[in-house]
Amino acid sequence: MKRRAFAICVASACAFGPALAVNPDEKLADPTLEARALALSREIRCVVCQNQSIDDSNAPLAADMRVIVRERIAAGDGDAEVKNFLVSRYGNFVLLRPPMRADTWFLWFGPALFLIAGAAGFAAYLRRPAIPASQAVPELSADERRRLEELERRGGA
């Protein structure tokens, strides 16, 4: 019984997929074009909410952008052309994956640089001698040794 309930859950999850903001009336009739529109919508940033794709967003402007993406795909535009249409109006910011260019190298490789710098710093810390020569405990002088012996003798008595 439990197994059957589980199977039904899995089957329905596969059938319906994750909940999306796309309204049924926005969808294209052709499933291959719709799949392309969906993939493209996930790459385009909603400029109202800024950290969601237009596919995830419920903002009215995102809905209008989904419609325009689908219109252009239906009109025969390639993926790059649709992206260029939006980039020329909103800038590269509208792409959730910014293009790799001279001015975005730090964005793409910055985290790796920080990781390498941190690892190098940590390695240098680990390889440092336990007590540097400059901080080594100096030998006792003859005077000090005599005092120490005397203190030990008195303490031990």
């Binding site: 209008d64 952008m65 419609v67 325009i68 939006l86 109006r89």
Partner: peptide
Amino acid sequence: FESRLAIELGVTG
């Protein structure tokens, strides 16, 4: 109503 001009202009709000 359908953001036709708004998207042409790059309106964000």
